[in-house]
Amino acid sequence: MSLQNLPPLREALAEHGLLARKSFGQHFLLDLNITRKIARLAGPLEGQTVIEVGPGPGGLTRALLEAGAQVIAVEMDPRFIELLGELAQAAEGRLTIVEGDALKVDEAALTGGAPAHLVSNLPYNVGTPLLIKWLTGPFRPTSMTLMFQKEVADRIAAPVGGDAYGRLAVISQAICEAKVVMDLPPRAFTPPPKVSSAVVRLDPLPNPPAPALVKALENVTGAAFGQRRKMLRSSLKVLGGEALCVKAGIDPGARAETVDVAGFLRLAAALAS
Rank of each mutant, 00 (worst) to 15 (best):
T111W: 01
V53F: 06
D77L: 08
G85R: 02
V126F: 08
R62P: 11
S23I: 12
A268K: 05
P192M: 10
S2N: 15
H117D: 13
E151R: 05
A223E: 13
A153H: 00
N219C: 15
I175C: 11
V105P: 09
A114D: 12
A210S: 13
L135R: 03
R10F: 13
P192L: 05
P186F: 06
A174T: 07
V170L: 00
K179D: 00
V126C: 04
A212H: 13
E177Q: 14
F24S: 07
K150N: 09
G112V: 09
C176T: 13
S196G: 14
A14F: 04
P123S: 12
I81D: 00
D77Y: 03
K247F: 04
A272I: 12
D101Y: 08
K230M: 00
K230S: 10
P192V: 08
G127Y: 04
L103V: 09
M76G: 14
F148D: 05
P208M: 01
R10S: 14
A254S: 14
S120W: 01
A109M: 02
G93N: 13
L131T: 08
K133T: 11
A158I: 08
G25D: 02
A188L: 07
M231H: 10
L205Y: 02
I171M: 11
A256I: 05
F148G: 06
G113V: 05
I51W: 07
E107S: 13
G222N: 11
V238H: 12
Q173D: 00
V126W: 01
G112F: 06
I156H: 06
R21I: 06
L29W: 05
F24Y: 14
K247E: 14
P211M: 05
F24H: 12
P123E: 11
V50D: 03
K104I: 03
S273R: 14
L6A: 09
H117W: 14
F80Q: 03
I72N: 00
